[in-house]
Nucleic acid binder design. Structure first.
Lengths: 222, 222
DNA sequence: TAGATTGTTAATCGATTAACAATC
DNA sequence: TAGATTGTTAATCGATTAACAATC
C-alpha cells in the first residue's frame, strides 16, 4: 500500500465511488438523456444523493441548480479526474482461470486499459495463446515495452517473485489477486482483491443475523 | 447493501481486517510458532500494530501482556467471530472464465465455503461439468438444497435476474462480480467486487503521481 | 527485577448526513 | 413566480493513531 497523495484534495472515499458514478452516467447516456440529478445518480450507484453532491463538489464540477448535471460534461470531468483519457498498458501474470477471465474482460479496453502482455511460469502454458495473445515466460516480460499496471493472478507462492519482476519493469500500480501481502517499494501502489475475504465478511454478517434471531436479548424482564 | 447489524459492536472496518489476521496467523502457525505479537501480525497483514490490538480488543480476545497472543486460540476466536466454524453452502451462477476460476478456487473449502451447485443459462454450457460438478440451468437451482451464499459471475444484463432467483431461493448473502447495482430486499447483503473499479482507482493514483511530478508547484518564487 | 507487550485512553482525523440558503 | 435541485455548512459519527499504564 502507498501513502495516498491526494494532491488536489479529492478524498480516497470519493475516488472509490467515482467509477460507480461513471457507470451510472453511462447508463443514463445510453437512454439518450443529457441531464441527470444527484438523486438519480445516487439511486443508480447505490449511495445517497447528498453523498453524490458532496463527492462531485470535490471535482469542482458545476451542476446547475434546479436542473441537475450535464451528463456528457460530467463523464468528461470524472474521466479526466481518474485519468481515463490516458492509455494504460496492462500486463497480466498467471494464466489460470482467473488470469484468463481478466484477459477476456471487455470492460477493460473501453476504459483505456489495454492488455499488452500475458505471462506465466508454467512451461506448458508459455507459448500458448489466450485471447489471441501469446503467453510469455516471466523473464521475457522485459521486452514488452512500457507497462503501467501489473495484475497478479498467480498462486500465492509465486506472487512476491512476480511483484519483484513487475517493480523491476517499472510498474507502479499492481492489482493483486493472490492472498498475500506483497512487499514493494513505497512508490508502488498495490490494491488487493481477495475472494476469501469478501466471503468471510458476508459470512460474518449472516452469522450475526442468525445469532440475533436465535438469542434475541430479553428486555424488560427481571 | 444492508444496514449493518453490528450487534456485539464489532466495527465494520475491523471485520474487514479479521480475514487478513486469520491468514497471518495461519502463516505463523505453519512455522510451528505458538505465540505471536501484535507487531508480527501487523507486519504480515500490512497494518499497524496499534490497529491490530484495537481490533482484537473488540473480540474480547485475551493476549498476554509481555508475551503476545496464543496463535491457536486467536485462530479459534476469529473463526468463531466470522462464523467460519459453520458450513456455508455456495452457489456460483455464470460459468464463464470467472465462474470457473471461482469454482476451482481451493481457498474456499478450507474456510467452510462449499460449492453445492453451479448454474448457467447458456444451453451449450448447461449439462457440462466444471470441476466435476454438473452445470444446471438457473431454473433447476431450486432442487439443490439450502444455499447460504450466491456468487454472481454473469454478464451485467443477466445479473439482476440471477439475483432475483437467488433471493427466491432464500439466499441472504450475495457476492456480485457483475458491474451493476443489484436491487434486493433489505435483509439481503450484497458485496460487489468490480475489477474495473479497482483499476480505475489505481489509475487515479498513478495519474496523480504523474501530475505531481510534472507540475510541481513552484514555491517561494514571485 | 528488567524487558516486553498488551489493552485502553484520548486526541486526531476523515467520512457521512441532514438541512437549507442560493439560484436556476 | 413557483418548483426543483445544487453546493455548502455544520453536526455527527466512526476509524485511526500514538502513547502509556498495567502487567506478564
Amino acid at each position: 500500500m502507498m501513502a495516498e497523495s491526494n494532491r488536489r484534495g479529492v478524498p480516497d472515499a470519493t475516488v472509490g465511488r467515482l467509477p460507480g458514478y461513471l457507470q451510472a452516467l453511462t447508463t443514463v447516456a445510453e437512454q439518450g438523456r443529457s441531464s441527470v440529478s444527484s438523486e438519480e445518480i445516487a439511486s443508480l450507484a447505490g449511495v445517497r444523493s447528498a453523498q453524490v453532491r458532496k463527492d462531485l463538489s470535490h471535482l469542482g464540477s458545476y451542476g446547475v441548480r434546479g436542473v441537475g448535471y450535464d451528463v456528457a460534461r460530467l463523464v468528461d470531468q470524472i474521466s479526466a479526474e481518474l485519468g481515463l483519457s490516458q492509455d494504460w498498458p496492462v500486463v497480466i501474470v498467471g494464466m489460470g482461470n482467473l488470469g484468463r477471465a481478466l484477459a477476456s474482460y471487455e470492460g477493460l479496453a473501453t476504459r483505456g486499459f489495454h492488455v499488452v502482455a500475458l505471462a506465466d511460469n508454467d512451461p506448458d502454458v508459455v507459448g500458448s495463446r489466450v485471447e489471441g495473445m501469446p503467453v510469455q515466460a516471466l523473464a521475457e516480460l522485459r521486452t514488452c515495452g512500457p507497462v503501467s499496471v501489473g495484475v497478479v493472478t498467480t498462486p500465492p507462492e509465486a506472487a512476491q517473485e512476480v511483484a519483484d519482476v513487475l517493480v523491476e519493469l517499472g510498474v507502479h500500480s499492481i492489482l493483486n489477486f493472490a492472498p498475500v501481502v506483497l512487499q514493494v517499494p513505497a512508490d508502488v501502489d498495490v490494491r488487493r482483491v481477495d475472494l476469501a475475504t469478501e466471503l468471510q465478511i458476508l459470512a460474518f454478517h449472516q452469522h450475526q443475523r442468525e445469532a440475533s434471531v436465535t438469542d434475541t436479548p430479553v428486555e424488560g424482564v427481571s
